[in-house]
Every structure is written in structure tokens, then in C-alpha cells.
Design a protein around this nucleic acid. Structure first.
Lengths: 124, 124
DNA sequence: TCAAACCTTCACATAGATGTGAAGGTCAAT
DNA sequence: ATTGACCTTCACATCTATGTGAAGGTTTGA
């Protein structure tokens, strides 16, 4: 598929898709005329990238961890250097911290909302 | 306490603390000489702000939700306008999405790491 | 054949969170 | 009294993820 279709199917601007390619997060074939040609699996991939970006990870890190996440459970380590392992462990821990922080604050917000709305939403 | 101490106790640069103040996330008294003077409760507050920022919330939103999170469980709604409620609900849902995305990907990383490291860490 | 709707690269702009440095005031200790 | 470690404001720089537009090539359909 071409960039326009990928853009529509992922809700991501063409500009951003080119940017992600520039950052090495996705790759594309080229048609004879120079147009980018994407494998359908990039739809999920781009959505995943957006999720990670939105979750606060920079493209630099996403690029590193992506290769470890899209294996179809065959677990062939592409380049499990000790350095890479370190990055992954660090990032996993950072994500755990973030999850805890987010959960804590979201629960506080939810609690506040429940208090304010008096649970009218659910119990009639 | 002055800005230097708050900076040390929160691991946040003085520059940032002034920025947060400019954005309305924190406030400060002023000593006779013009130095900022902070209430000790701002230590926790700043740490919370950093967590929320790191979790991907912009200062604009943080400013809105903070007043709802630092009540000592007395739940007095300061200004629960319908608009405010809407913002909170939206943000709560966004945070939930983020948490799910982060959890999913973190688990994938953890799984990958376990496979690569063969669980040598725990079972000797 | 012409127009609309694609696509390309290049490049400059923006917004938010931060760094950094200048120019200067304050204070405590020597 | 001077030095060093604070503090102030102001302002410009940086990085990352984005928007936007120019200048131009391609494809498709009327």
C-alpha cells in the first residue's frame, strides 16, 4: 500500500510516516516511480509506535525495542548484545515506574470524579 | 525553603522550578530580598508533577487536575464546572489507554528478556 | 489533453520541556 | 572588604515531535 492509505489506516499524517522512516522505525519498498510501498503489517506497527510515543518513549528507544516486540513468538534473538539487554531492562523498569505513576494519578482522578458525580452514572 | 533546596530534594533544576511556577503548577512566597520561599509540601508536589510530565501529560492539563489530587481526602470541590469534569474524564480515559499500551509493551519486553536470559537470574 | 489526486524531496516553522549564560543583587564566612 | 555560594530576571539555544508549504513528478479519469 502507498503512504496515503497507511496514513488513513493509522490516523497518522504522511509527514509523520516519513519521519518515522527517517528515524528508522519503519521501512518501505519503493515502486518503480519512487512511491513508497508498505507491507500491510506496518498498519499495526505504526499504531504500536504511536502508542509508545504517546506513552512517553522517544523514537530513539522505540527503535531499539521494536525488533524485540514484533517476533511472532519464535524468539530468535537478532542481536542480543549485553548493551541491548541493558537498555531493555532499563526501559522495562522505567515503563513500570511510569505505569505505577499513571495508575496512581488516574485512580486519584477517578476517585475525585466519583465523589463529585456521586456515582450517579452507574447506580440509578 | 529556598529554590536550591527544593531543587536538590526533588532532583529538578532551578530553571524548571521557575518554569513550573510560570506555568502555574506551583507558587512561592517571596522573602524580603526577593528570594523564593517554598512550603515543604511542594517537595511532594514537584515530584508528582514530574511523574505526570514523564507520563506524558502537558503542564496545561497538570495544572487543571492538580487541585483535585492534593486534597487531604476532604473532597471539597473547588470549581467542579462541567467543563472541568469533562477534561478530567477525558484525561482519565487517556491515562487508562496509556497504561494499557505501556503494560502491553512492557510485558512484551519482559517476556523477551526472560526468553533471552533464560530465567538464569532467578533459578540457579 | 487537462485536472485532480496522488506522490517525491527540501526546508522552514512551531510548541513544549529544558539547558545555559549574562548581568547583577544578597549573604555568610574568612 | 572580599570571596563564593546563593539568589534574581531576561533571553537566547536545543531537542523532539509535529505542521506546512513550495516545486515538481505520476497516475487516473473526464
Amino acid at each position: 500500500m502507498r503512504i496515503g492509505e497507511l496514513s488513513e489506516r493509522t490516523g497518522t499524517s504522511r509527514r509523520l510516516l516519513r519521519y518515522y522512516e527517517e528515524q528508522g522505525l519503519i521501512v518501505s519498498e519503493r515502486c518503480a516511480n519512487g512511491y513508497r510501498d508498505y507491507d500491510p503489517r506496518f498498519v499495526d506497527r505504526v499504531i504500536q509506535i504511536r502508542g509508545l510515543l504517546d506513552a512517553g518513549l522517544p523514537t530513539r528507544i522505540i527503535k531499539q525495542i521494536l525488533p524485540c516486540l514484533d517476533k511472532p513468538r519464535s524468539i530468535h534473538f537478532p542481536d542480543a548484545t549485553p548493551e541491548m539487554i541493558g537498555t531493555l531492562e532499563r526501559e522495562r523498569d522505567r515503563m513500570t515506574d511510569r505505569i505505577e505513576c499513571l495508575t496512581r494519578n488516574r485512580d486519584a482522578i477517578a476517585e475525585y470524579l466519583e465523589a463529585v458525580l456521586g456515582g450517579v452514572r452507574d447506580r440509578p
